[in-house]
Simulated scan of single mutants.
Amino acid sequence: MPRSRDRHGRGIRGPLALPHTWSSRPVPLRHPSRTDFFTDCVTDAMSAIAAVNPTALDGVLVGVEDVPQWSPTWSADRVPMSAALEGTGDSKAQVVLYERPLEHRAVTRAQLRRLVYRTIVEQLSALTGTPLAELTGIDDADWDL
């Protein structure tokens, strides 16, 4: 019996069992799914903001939706990436990120990570009136670089 896999569709593809701790073969690493990676990006961005300004996220909820509700006032190439909703007396302020438009604008996963961070920071700044420098530790002049 040959040791290599049959790649012509007639046999098993890959090993019969996953490797375990007693085996010398390492466990194959899997890339996180699209949704898991996006959730990690949002969590990392919120952690980075909280590390620079611990009170920046007080009273603000950050949520993720797949796509925004369609509005007839939008043109076909101008779909929002996020929304900031003011808080009322009984509800907190909200920052809503739209996953698919953000993914569509980023080419790589590294660009998506930066875009999610920048989007959250800009929405927080607009919502709370806090300057970008206080949320990121970066001067406003260097923000566009």
Results as ranks from 00 to 15, higher is better:
Pro19Val: 12
Asp58Thr: 12
Asp44Asn: 13
Ala93Met: 07
Gly9Met: 06
Phe37Ser: 03
Arg13Tyr: 09
Pro28His: 07
Gly89Met: 11
Asp90Asn: 13
Gly63Phe: 06
Arg105Thr: 11
Ser82Tyr: 00
Pro28Asp: 06
Glu103Arg: 15
Gly89Ile: 10
Thr35Gln: 12
Leu115Thr: 05
Ser75Glu: 10
Arg30Asn: 09
Ser91Val: 13
Thr21Gln: 08
Pro54Cys: 04
Ala17Asn: 06
Gln111Gly: 12
Ser71Phe: 09
Gly11Asn: 08
Pro80Asp: 08
Asp58Arg: 06
Ala84Lys: 04
His20Phe: 10
Trp74Gln: 05
Ala51Asp: 15
Arg114Asn: 11
Ala56Asn: 01
Arg105Gln: 13
Thr43Arg: 14
Leu112Cys: 03
Ala50Tyr: 02
Arg113Leu: 08
His104Glu: 13
Val62Tyr: 06
Ala110Gly: 08
Gly89Lys: 10
Leu112Phe: 04
Ala48Glu: 13
Thr88Arg: 10
Val27Arg: 14
Pro26Lys: 04
Ser33Cys: 04
Pro32Asp: 15
Gly63Trp: 06
Arg10Ser: 10
Asp40Val: 03
Thr21Arg: 14
Arg5His: 09
Val60His: 02
Asp6Trp: 05
Arg7Ala: 08
Ala45Thr: 04
Lys92Leu: 15
Ser23Glu: 14
His104Arg: 13
Ser82Asp: 00
Pro54Gly: 06
Gly59Asp: 11
Tyr98Met: 01
Thr39Phe: 07
Pro54Lys: 06
Met46Ala: 06
Gly14Ile: 04
Arg113Ile: 01
Arg13Asp: 14
Leu97Trp: 00
Val96Asp: 01
Arg25Leu: 15
Leu57Pro: 02
Thr35Glu: 15
Gly9Leu: 07
Arg30Trp: 12
Ala50Gln: 11
Leu61Lys: 06
Ala51Leu: 10
Pro72Glu: 07
Gln111Pro: 02
Asp58Ile: 05
Pro19Phe: 12
Gly59Leu: 09
Pro101Tyr: 05
His8Trp: 09
Arg100Pro: 00
Glu103Pro: 00
Glu99Lys: 10
Ala48Ile: 00
Thr73Pro: 00
Leu61His: 12
Gln111Trp: 02
His104Lys: 11
Asp44Thr: 14
Asp6Glu: 13
Val67Glu: 13
Thr55Asn: 13
Ser23Ala: 14
Gly9Glu: 08
Pro68Cys: 01
Arg109Leu: 12
